[in-house]
């Protein structure tokens, strides 16, 4: 049974922001509600009002904008999994979204809610970090945009202020030369570990590489130091570098021992999946090029 609350419908971004400013701590944004209703049921969160943002049409758009795709905060995981624009222009994201929880959660839960809740065990952030995505939030003083990595602050914590609303996520498409891959291992619908990779090759060497890992520590992270070490070397060198990066991975990812595995196990698996994802990303570049030549 859920504790009592009142629902307020909002019809525009301005409307929602002014209600958030007026009500402060007494209101919580209600989008898909997948996580929110569970928190309310278990008394992990108390609120007098649910601010329903579903009627705001602008938040449910998916639009191609030049070399990127702008995704509204209310777009569901299921739409990101199936939408033709996302599948065509951001295929790794569509693949990651197809693995979120189960069909019912995907149909109800939204990308904006997912990022704002910042549950450490979640798929989309890992994929979005590889794309260098940024988020736009609106507050009483207007809009501000920031890189997703800066928006994610820690476990269940983001840079979103209590009177702000996440409006959209801008996701630049990967340059044509980059192949990509998203891998995860999971137990009972919740990922234990997620890895996203994108890479390109030039004259046998890895020209550009992007690597992200999620679900191991407090939040999803880009592994910039590891990327820098791998860049410029050959694929064989990259395997060796990843294998020798255990202490870096442990320090950076901050794994803990829990029911999903020991910290040591998670660092080991992170290395294995990073190697595989990088190899697949490089393979996907070649496939893309084969496709063009053919």
């Amino acid at each position: 049974m859920l504790p009592p609350f009142k629902i307020l419908h909002t019809h525009s971004i301005e409307d929602a922001v002014s209600e958030l400013s007026r009500l402060g701590d007494q209101a919580k944004i209600y989008g898909g509600g997948t996580e929110l209703l569970i928190l309310l049921r278990h008394n992990l969160l108390q609120t007098e009002y649910l601010l329903n943002i579903k009627p705001i049409a602008e938040l449910s758009h998916i639009r191609s904008v030049e070399d990127s795709v702008r995704i509204g905060g209310s777009v569901t995981h299921r739409r990101l999994e199936t939408d033709p624009t996302i599948r065509d222009r951001l295929p790794m994201l569509a693949g990651a979204e197809s693995q979120v929880a189960n069909i019912r959660v995907r149909g109800q839960g939204t990308i904006g809610g997912n990022l704002c809740f910042n549950d450490p065990h979640s798929d989309p952030a890992t994929a979005l970090l590889v794309y260098d995505a940024s988020v736009t939030v609106h507050g009483p003083n207007g809009a501000r945009q920031m890189p997703l990595q800066g928006f994610l602050r820690g476990m269940y914590s983001t840079a979103l202020e209590p009177d702000e609303l996440l409006v959209s996520i801008d996701v630049p498409c990967l340059p044509a030369k980059l192949g990509s891959s998203y891998l995860r291992i999971h137990r009972l619908q919740r990922p234990t570990l997620t890895v996203g990779a994108a890479a390109s090759r030039r004259n046998g060497a890895i020209e550009e590489v992007r690597l992200a890992v999620g679900c191991v520590g407090p939040m999803a992270l880009r592994l910039t130091e590891l990327e820098a070490k791998i860049q410029g070397g050959g694929p064989d060198d990259s395997r060796k570098i990843i294998r020798e990066s255990k202490s870096y991975l442990k320090k950076t990812l901050e794994p803990i021992d829990d029911l999903l595995g020991s910290a040591e196990y998670k660092v080991y698996i992170a290395g294995v999946l990073l190697e595989r994802a990088l190899a697949q990303a490089l393979e996907n570049v070649e496939k893309k090029q084969d496709g063009k030549n053919g």
Partner: peptide, 21 residues
């Protein structure tokens, strides 16, 4: 919203009725 025992269809879409207002 994990087990699926409460699944019903709302406008033909599967919903976890336990976690849906």
């Amino acid at each position: 919203q994990v087990c699926g025992a409460c699944t019903v269809l709302v406008d033909e879409q599967p919903i976890s009725s336990c976690n849906y207002l």
